[in-house]
Simulated assay, not measured.
Amino acid sequence: MLWLLLLQVWASCLWLGHSELVPLFVNCLEFFYGDTPPDAAMKPQNPAWICQTLNNQRFFATLYDRQKRIPMYSAYKYEPGKFHTNHTWTVEPQLINDSLPQDMYTVQALERAYNITRAQIMQSQAVSADYENSGWDRGHLNPNGHHNTLASRNATFTLTNIVPMDKKLNRGAWKKYEQQTMRQKTKKCQNDKIYVIVGAVPGNSSIAGGRVNVPSHIWSGACCKTRNNTVSAWAAIANNKHNRIWKISLGHLEKRLAQLYGMQNVSLFHDDCPRNVSLTS
């Protein structure tokens, strides 16, 4: 099986050249536990595998749905710092044309630097204006407060890391999970060995005249190496219409996602991550 995976990676690299939109995240596997991304169960029809890059530095990985204009999930290493909300929203030039830079740009800077039109930018991704007066928050999958440097926090403000999220959920139960529950869950983990994947299940409604899908559910899974060199995992899921979170095991989350996606199985993490137990909070 390993040689088949390597062959697929090699063939993908030949096809896509030097772009960061590389299937299987071969250039940013370090954001996944055991260098193992989720399986293909959640892959959209028109996917983009993004190594999220700011100032030529990679900070996390995102599987993006160009058609629905939302991320399927973002994967990162948990290194908590201060939350802040004053960074400018950015977009991904590489979604327009893989010859464009890998770095994030503001819409205005991208238009000026490369003579790109607003319509070209909007064709394959959401822009901040899509969320204005929509009634929905710009909800981070990878939250800026889970990073401990200004650069890594700023990198989370790309629109490819954002979904329409219920305001009460985003500012209430989900925020509590991000800021309080995650700190409690990670107390026994090695600080540099905590891996998180946060995702969104596409729903049946949209904003911005049908441009941006509104997810039906938001979910989070985590796996870490403990200070005792054991492995622990935990998860959570929320309906994107209610201010409530269900804290569950990783195995329970995978089964629930399989149901929501109509798949037989979903695998989010490396096999070492336990499916039916979690750290106590």
Rank of each mutant, 00 (worst) to 15 (best):
P274F: 00
E254P: 08
K77C: 06
P23Y: 09
Y78D: 06
N46P: 01
T230K: 15
S220N: 13
H242V: 12
H252S: 14
R211E: 14
R171Y: 03
G209P: 10
R227L: 14
D271R: 14
N161A: 08
T36I: 10
V266G: 04
N204G: 01
P38W: 01
P143A: 06
A113T: 14
Y105Q: 11
G221C: 11
K241Y: 05
N142T: 11
T90P: 04
Y76N: 00
I116Y: 04
I237L: 02
V107T: 15
L279H: 03
L4D: 10
K193F: 04
S206R: 01
I237Y: 00
T160H: 09
S19P: 09
G172N: 11
Q184N: 09
A109L: 08
T158D: 02
M263V: 02
L29H: 03
D130N: 11
Y105W: 13
V214D: 00
T53L: 10
W174P: 02
N133F: 10
V163T: 15
I70Y: 09
K82S: 11
R171C: 04
N276I: 06
F59S: 01
Y64W: 07
G135T: 02
N154S: 15
L21H: 07
R244N: 13
C273T: 08
N228E: 14
N228Y: 10
G221H: 04
N239C: 03
V196Q: 04
A235L: 08
A236L: 07
A200T: 08
L63Y: 10
Q123H: 12
G34F: 12
R171E: 12
L95T: 07
T149Q: 06
T36E: 14
N161L: 11
N154D: 13
P37M: 11
T85N: 15
R153V: 05
A75M: 07
A208Y: 01
A113R: 14
V266M: 10
N27H: 12
M165E: 15
V266P: 00
W10H: 09
K176T: 10
L150G: 06
N86Q: 13
H18T: 09
P38K: 09
D192Y: 04
W89Y: 15
M1Q: 09
T226W: 01
H252A: 14
F31N: 00
T156M: 08
Y76F: 15
H270L: 02
D35H: 13
S99C: 08
G251W: 00
A151E: 15
P93Q: 09
F59T: 00
T117I: 10
V198S: 15
I96V: 12
T226C: 07
C273V: 04
R112P: 03
Q184T: 03
S267E: 12
L5T: 09
K225D: 12
Y73C: 06
D98K: 12
F59V: 01
L54I: 02
K193T: 03
E254F: 07
A236D: 05
M104L: 15
K225H: 10
C189I: 07
S216Q: 10
I96N: 01
K193L: 03
D271N: 12
C13H: 04
